[in-house]
Write a protein that binds this DNA or RNA. Structure first.
Lengths: 229, 229
DNA sequence: GCATATTTGTCCGTATGTATA
DNA sequence: CTATACATACGGACAAATATG
């Protein structure tokens, strides 16, 4: 059920030499639904219900759960079940502390040209999407830009950690009332950061990025705190 | 089998409010064996053999595998099984690129006093262990010192990522012939870094740390490359 | 290159314990 | 407090892929 099992060998280019197992496909499907906000924070993922809905056994589903718990997208409460993670203010602050350290340091000491290329592509995609008023894609491009910033550091593991962090962040994005307004103001800022980075003005690029992150953090924190205060 | 299931409630102090599930306990047991080198790189973890040896079902064991695969300690090869990860030179370089960025940036922009306290405790432990010629404990203290450095940044998620990175690194430590000699030369260096950090000489501490990491990387790379060259 | 044995991948049924109405 | 629902964990089964002789 879940998905048409890829024909056979699946030896596509790249690193992925192994056809995904069912648990991996289930995890990917759930991950997508979570970051897209279709499964909102706090939602319980009942084993019986989900396994029948997806057409997989409970054992396989539980393997998928372990993957997503490891990515912090699900939380496990013993004998109660697994739930879509709910981020609180401390979580958001923690994530942005992480991002500030990594992204600013990456820009300050550039080591990989591949990251710059990603940043460039992301800025172009964001501009294009904004012109078409495709706000969701603007958000995607924004995330892509910052993954690119991280890639400047030149560590595959660091990139992966950051991708996981952004998946978590989307749990908070879903709480922001007008998601369009969240990313649009950053389009020009990203372009400016890119230009500074390409001209070798590493310190100024890093400083501008820090301002971006402080601003973004404040917006998300306000949204997570809710209408109160 | 695996381990005496903790009596009942297990509401110890700290964050851990949930009694570990069997899969988590199995994962912890295997993790320990892996980082201690008892399960060496490349070893296959046969499901039937391990599940009977540990007294758990195959399903439960497979859940534990997913946890450790997520931590990069095991690799999954479809229809072949799971194996203890084998690090190559690129892996070691990647890990040290990660460490350089994070640890140096943490020291350069200190944000948490708790991290400094950990560094201080680790230096003391290392000195004490060296005096007793407990070389294994010297290594433990060295790792603790650098986890402390990371903690200076003040992000729980960053700390966790770094702990995972060190678990991976131990796969490579096991390849170094005389593990004693790996950490001992760094005892004085750690103390010096700590002193600079405590005196607020953030830049000099960060620079010294970078030299440490370059040196350590070279040693590990040489060990992983083997007697050749 | 082929037939066979082994191991993984996945499912089902079920007994037990835990939380909640 | 009982009852119900659900998670936990086990063992068995079989197909599919891989390894072996």
């Amino acid at each position: 059920m879940v998905a048409p099992p890829p024909t056979s060998a699946t030896i596509l280019g790249g690193v992925q030499l192994q056809r995904p197992t069912t648990a991996q496909r289930v995890a990917e499907l759930l991950r997508e639904r979570i970051v897209q906000g279709e499964l909102s924070s706090g939602t319980q993922c009942a084993e019986l219900q989900l396994s029948t809905a997806l057409g997989v056994s409970r054992n396989t589903l539980r393997e998928a759960f372990q993957i997503l718990v490891g990515e912090h997208l699900l939380v496990h409460e013993p004998h109660r079940g697994v739930f879509v993670r709910r981020l609180d203010v401390d979580d958001v602050r923690d994530i942005y502390t992480f991002r500030r350290l990594v992204e600013c340091a990456a820009l300050a000491h550039p080591a990989s040209a591949r990251g710059l290329a990603e940043m460039r592509a992301a800025v172009a995609q964001g501009m294009d999407a904004a012109a078409r008023e495709a706000w969701h894609e603007v958000g995607t491009a924004d995330v892509r830009f910052h993954v690119g910033v991280t890639a400047v550091a030149g560590s595959e593991r660091l990139d992966q950690a950051m991708r996981g962090l952004f998946a978590e962040l989307r749990l908070a994005f879903a709480l922001v009332p007008d998601a369009h307004e969240l990313h649009r103001p950053f389009l020009d800022l990203n372009a400016e950061i890119l230009e500074l980075a390409e001209r070798g003005q590493a310190d100024r690029a890093s400083l501008l990025l820090r301002r971006y992150l402080d601003d973004a953090e404040a917006r998300i924190v306000a949204a997570v705190q809710g209408p109160s205060s």
